[in-house]
Design a protein around this nucleic acid. Structure first.
Lengths: 196, 196
DNA sequence: GCGATAGATGTTAGTGACTAACACTTGTGG
DNA sequence: CCACAAGTGTTAGTCACTAACATCTATCGC
């Protein structure tokens, strides 16, 4: 069941995506997005705290954190996180809809939005540390999470921006293999987390 | 020889640092920084493109890129970058002045500024890839650079923010050892790059 | 059905970051 | 001393974002 608020939110996101693609992120005002979605600019800010959030909001942090937490706790931090991310590869080949890809492609071009993506990454990092860090191991887990997520971000930008026709899942596999070469030939079982 | 412009710029940075520490980043307006430095707000924007840049500008990218480029080219990307950063550890224990630490401490607390730091990291990443990537190896180098720099950023935040009295150099060594365990017992010669 | 209540949206009036255009001032070389 | 350029000031904007309060609309108890 979709509430009215959810519908408004979705309309705002769709309108923003279209307008940003058409004329560029900077050239589109919040007022215009709101009007295109049939609401006032105040309603926009009730659904998204900033202009960039209408493009960059994503609900995947809990899934990622759970996938990492499900990995064996006796592995080195980097391997554990890398395995968690690899376990999500099957999901990655289904879940990121075309709109996700369009959003990342827009974000890849605007420096402002790259900073916003970094904020997303930081949030994901915190989620991982909270969900999966052993007591006293937070420092190492934070380092490893930051490193692995940065690697994933790097390939996501390629995936969305250039003409690379490789699957996001493939690219993530490459990224994790680069960061944790020890996993090159490991078999990582898929993570059966629910889609949010 | 310091030109008038350089002096103005330095005054703006010093005034901003003091005011941010005193009352918080958000609560200080560009107008106030400019006035405290004895100039108009327009002059502020002639020296710094945004409010956050007065705090986050740094000139270290070329040094870092050179240190990485100086590492043996036959190493895996992660190890090469990790060694490059380790080679700068002796510098790290001298160069980051107290004002650098104060700036990072302020940035660590404000989400806005964390995004700005990410922009810095992205710039450093580009510098490394340009200076040190083998032709065709840009993808791997970008992944590895993103991963290593994210790890360094994580420890820099600790260094600046909490009461950890460990040297930044020590913390960077920990970070690189976490990311590239193979380097745990390697001897990395210091990089004799010029301070900028 | 029907009114009460809470959630969703609109209106208005700001603040502050940032930009553009143009005038002025100060240092520097001939 | 004068020409020229670099540095700075003034003014007048646009737009992201916030606060306070009014209005509308869906849903629930009756």
């Amino acid at each position: 069941m979709t509430t009215r608020a959810e519908a408004t939110r979705a309309r705002l996101q769709a309108a923003a995506l279209d307008l940003f693609e058409e004329r560029g992120y900077r050239a589109v005002t919040v007022e215009e997005i709101a009007t295109a979605a049939g609401v006032s600019h105040m309603t926009f800010f009730r659904h998204f705290p900033t202009k960039e959030r209408v493009l960059l909001d994503d609900p995947f942090d809990p899934v990622i954190a759970a996938a990492v937490a499900a990995q064996p706790t006796d592995l080195p931090a980097v391997e554990r996180i890398a395995r968690g991310l690899l376990a999500l590869v099957p999901l990655l080949d289904q879940e990121p809809t075309e709109s996700t890809r369009r959003a990342i492609a827009i974000a890849a071009g605007e420096p402002d939005l790259q900073a916003g993506m970094a904020a997303n990454t930081a949030a994901t990092e915190r989620a991982i540390v909270e969900a999966a860090a052993a007591p006293g191991g937070e420092g190492e887990m934070r380092i490893a999470a930051a490193a692995c997520l940065a690697a994933v971000t790097a390939v996501m930008l390629d995936w969305a921006a250039d003409g690379s026709r490789r699957t996001l899942g493939d690219l993530v596999t490459v990224a994790m293999t680069t960061v944790a070469p020890a996993l090159a030939h490991a078999e990582v079982p898929a993570f059966a987390g629910a889609t949010p």
